[in-house]
């Protein structure tokens, strides 16, 4: 895996004429590396990895809030219980739909917004604040707010649809097994577009104009400039933002929890909302086992994703 992440980085620098030359690897260099990484490591190890390792034991124990006086080690039993649960495959499938659909739409809209925002126009700062603010609204608030707005009988969305004549009857968004998933994804898209828009915009701003001018002189059209010059230049940012968003969306139960609680009939149940259900039942063993399964899936995904993206462009 180590090779693949490195190469992604190098891909990102295609605008640089000669590839970065390998530095001489001296003792001094490795000390520098260590020194620069140490502060980050200290925080992450103390406040993230140490609690993870200690708390992670729960996954291999019978760990029920109802009786913490005995928490025997039970090996992988929590994992097998989960996988044997008929809901397991449905939850994983829902998670997949939730991640892919939210991600693709967020990315496309975010990318287009970033492109649209490159050129200066009056009140661009105000405009950006207007479209970026959803990111600063907490997930649970978005959940209950959209739940209210999507309410079939009294919600404002149906009211608008009916007033404008788009729909004659109220649409039971959250009560319909198919529409409920659409509704939660709509809310998530509304929330998540800002992240891509800002990150891609920031990356686009670091593409030197000389490159575009050179392309223009070459007579390349807009589309060609975009696909041949712009995108390759900000490739690392694109690859990494997508990766981070996959991880975050997978681990983001707030909106679904607030909007549907996983219902109706488990139709919007994803891995992390299911995990919340286990913690509410007091079964921290099952909940953390599910947490590890999610982490496992994401680690494998990360490895494959980075490897594939590296291989794809090899000459």
């Amino acid at each position: 895996m180590s090779a693949s992440t490195d190469e992604v980085a190098e891909r990102g620098r295609t605008h640089e004429a000669p590839p970065p030359r390998r530095r001489q690897f001296t003792k001094r260099t490795s000390l520098t590396i260590l020194a620069y990484l140490t502060p980050a490591f200290i925080f992450v190890i103390i406040f993230t990895y140490y609690p993870l390792v200690v708390g992670g034991q729960m996954a291999f124990r019978k760990w029920s809030l109802y009786d913490l006086t005995s928490t025997p080690f039970i090996g992988l039993e929590n994992f097998t219980t989960l996988i044997a649960n008929p809901l397991f495959s449905k939850v994983m499938l829902n998670s997949l739909v939730w991640v892919v659909a939210s991600l693709v739409v967020q990315f496309l809209i975010g990318f287009m917004l970033a492109l649209g925002l490159r050129k200066k126009f009056r009140f661009r700062g105000v405009y950006q604040a207007m479209i970026f603010y959803p990111w600063a609204v907490s997930g649970f608030l978005i959940g209950i707010l959209f739940r209210w707005m999507f309410n079939s009988e009294f919600g404002v969305f149906n009211d608008m649809l009916m007033r404008t004549g788009v729909s004659a009857k109220p649409i039971p968004w959250l009560a319909n097994p198919d529409l409920a998933l659409v509704a939660v994804i709509v809310a998530n898209v509304w929330y998540g577009v800002a992240f891509f828009a800002i990150m891609i915009l920031a990356a686009l701003q670091s593409v030197p104009h000389e490159l575009h001018e050179a392309a223009a002189i070459d007579g390349a059209g807009r589309w060609r400039t975009l696909t041949r010059v712009t995108i390759p230049t900000i490739r690392t940012t694109l690859v990494l933002t997508v990766l981070l968003r996959v991880i975050w969306i997978f681990n983001f139960p707030d909106i679904i929890y607030g909007m549907t609680g996983g219902g109706p009939g488990n139709q919007t149940q994803i891995a992390t909302t299911w995990m919340i259900q286990f913690t509410q039942q007091g079964d921290y063993g099952l909940a953390s086992a599910l947490g590890f399964i999610v982490m496992g899936v994401l680690v494998v995904f990360t490895g494959v994703y980075l490897t594939l993206l590296t291989r794809e462009r090899k000459p």
């Binding site: 895996m1 180590s2 992440t5 690897f25 993230t48 990895y49 609690p51 991880i247 681990n251 982490m295």
Partner: peptide, 27 residues
């Protein structure tokens, strides 16, 4: 810099983004 454990460091950073908060909360 290019160093052998770089991928591992990246992965160690990425994994922190995947940890459900409740696991770490007790400790």
């Amino acid at each position: 810099f290019h160093f052998r454990s770089k991928g591992a460091v990246m992965m160690a950073f990425l994994v922190t983004q995947m940890i459900p908060a409740f696991i770490a909360l007790g400790p």
